[in-house]
Design a binder for these strands. Structure first.
Lengths: 359, 359
DNA sequence: CTGAAAGCGCTTACAG
DNA sequence: CTGAAAGCGCTTACAG
């Protein structure tokens, strides 16, 4: 098989044209006359030719590849339960690979365990010329990867906003994110429409719970509920919405405790919006043990939300992945574009509202 | 940065040696005198040189890369609950990438949705010279990927046995797998040691439940329990072990129903070994709703087993991943070895017993 | 629109 | 153990 593998030379010979006519057909089809193209394509077909991508990369100095980190979900030493923590991450990798295949680019994977130096790994990948760009997740202002890549003009995109950083910093690099507030707003509205009037919230601890400018995912998801609930309900008759929420850790145990507190403080609560599927599951378990019948909603639309049959918010990972590539590569084409710092991407386009899945 | 990137030429000049001395230092260090090596390494360090891997691949005709498929865990149209189905798969990808980094090889990812032709995708990857081999999961005898790769002498390894195929077929290609029977045996023994004497089993439906030659994962995990339990207990006084098990689907609902049936038939059951964490969770839920206190054990040691605090079996994915690479690449070195059909790998070495995690 | 030449950065023969 | 040459299979200038 190796001996008979077609090269661009054999294709050219077969088609009776020169090397670079074949190359043009592959890379700049518009430069070639239709009939010539036809002959070349026939030869390619006949010889079952596929370009040698190493040769292409070497010559063109483009790898047409990106790298993404894969993480372990092993349940060791995690702050959260980790029950579903890997779900979105893994789904993102899948959707990214899928979107990349459509764009004709390859996805390299690498790992980086806590304690390892990720910048070293990035350096190796860049220097070996294997990748043109990166897809990062959970970048923060102090993130050394950010500084490293920006300094070197290496294209990259982050899935996740730099929460709590200045607007200037946030607009200094490209990112896409999920609109958490929009999600919890939709869940709150759904419960309201269904006739629920006392809608509680279970979230994560936050440092500035009263702000209207969210500085974390926790703030963001809290805000969507609190604003919406305040708007919807009779504003005079009741206490502040803030009294109808409990904030804690991303664990079943914490969620159960929070739900118990919330329901003992407000026995009239008839629906609970939760910041995650883990919290929703914990709340559901507590509600069941109290022999109550109160619907909950989660976030992520993980398999768990389906199994335990509660409404949840689908992050549209597929859309986010193709948007990520659009930012990295432009609307079409198959090369990672060089960074053009003069051209800023309009921020609002990069925050994708999740889709409520009602169960 | 691009302009100043070091090449092998600049390193050679810096070190005052020829090109291929540098190349030798990198690829055949034993051919080079220590002091020459030292000079070259100093130059590499000084110029921060990393070989251009596309050039290396083109010339050496080795990609030093493998491909692995990444799948979606999205909870749509799956037979099983999918609650944890993706966990092992994703963990395997992570451990494979990690083990590959140690071996100096890269991992490409690709996707293949139901209805797509995976062989076409393999062909593209091979023809473009981007990969030397593949890591497949869940191969069966009729698997077209198997025939395709074997026919073309493309190195690959499967994570998972070809259940139910002939011994001849099973030994016609390399695979590694988990010893399911050993796992459920260990769980059964643990419960026995803790004083439990009536140990039930929850598994998946199987076509030949009475065979001692397992033909599926379902058989395998069932067998470990039934044999062990038969050995341990008083063989005369009681019914056949088979009466102490229930087989069903990989769903919470099915597990709850199975557990209910099992416990109503044998109220004296004081522990239940389960074929998966999903089944164990279902059993645990049913037991709780019956206000009983019966421990369960699962399989996979998924985050769920930790959260719901039941014992489970860790598949040692990390070990399996490095074993996979050992099969593909030999004990050491960093190239995927060509297939040598004359040399058969000793099968028993390829079945790894899982590790019981007691909770 | 098509063609002959150069060259991307390595490794692999082959000499010494 | 080290060196000068060839060449992997493409794409990219540059001519026509």
């Amino acid at each position: 098989m190796d001996k008979t593998r077609a090269s661009i030379v054999s294709v050219a010979r077969e088609a009776g044209v020169s090397l670079q006519t074949v190359s043009n057909v592959l890379n700049f089809p518009e430069r070639v006359k239709p009939e010539t193209t036809k002959k070349v394509l026939a030869a390619i077909e006949k010889l079952n030719y596929t370009p040698n991508l190493s040769a292409r990369r070497l010559r063109s100095k483009k790898s047409s590849s990106i790298a993404v980190r894969v993480d372990s979900n092993a349940p060791v030493g995690k702050g959260s339960d980790g029950l579903y923590s890997g779900y979105i991450q893994d789904e993102f990798v899948y959707e990214l690979v899928r979107a990349s295949e459509i764009r004709g680019i390859k996805v390299f994977t690498y790992t980086c365990d806590p304690g390892e130096n990720e910048v070293d790994k990035l350096t190796k990948l860049i220097n070996s010329r294997d990748v043109d760009g990166f897809l990062l997740t959970s970048t923060v202002e102090a993130d050394p990867r950010l500084k490293y890549l920006i300094d070197r003009n290496v294209p990259f995109l982050s899935f996740g906003r730099p929460w709590g950083s200045s607007a200037e910093f946030a607009s200094s690099y490209p990112w896409v994110d999920v609109d958490g507030a929009s999600g919890t707003r939709d869940a709150t509205k759904m419960f309201w429409k269904l006739g629920h009037r006392t809608i509680g919230f279970l979230g994560w601890r936050t440092t500035n719970p009263s702000s209207t400018k969210p500085k974390s995912v926790a703030d963001d998801r809290l805000l969507g509920w609190s604003q919406t609930y305040a708007e919807l309900r009779d504003s005079k008759a009741k206490k502040s919405p803030r009294d109808y929420c409990e904030l804690g850790d991303e664990t079943i145990a914490s969620a159960r405790a929070s739900a118990a507190r919330l329901l003992s403080r407000h026995p009239d609560i008839d629906a609970i919006v939760c910041a995650s599927d883990t919290l929703a599951l914990g709340a559901q378990m507590e509600i069941a043990s109290l022999k109550k019948n109160i619907p909950v909603s989660g976030f992520d639309n993980s398999p768990t939300s389906k199994v335990f049959n509660f409404s949840s918010l689908d992050q549209n990972i597929s859309e986010i992945a193709s948007l990520a590539l659009k930012v990295l590569m432009g609307d079409e084409g198959n090369s990672i574009r060089k960074i053009d710092s003069s051209k800023q991407i309009a921020e609002p386009n990069l925050i994708i509202p999740p889709r409520l899945v009602v169960r």
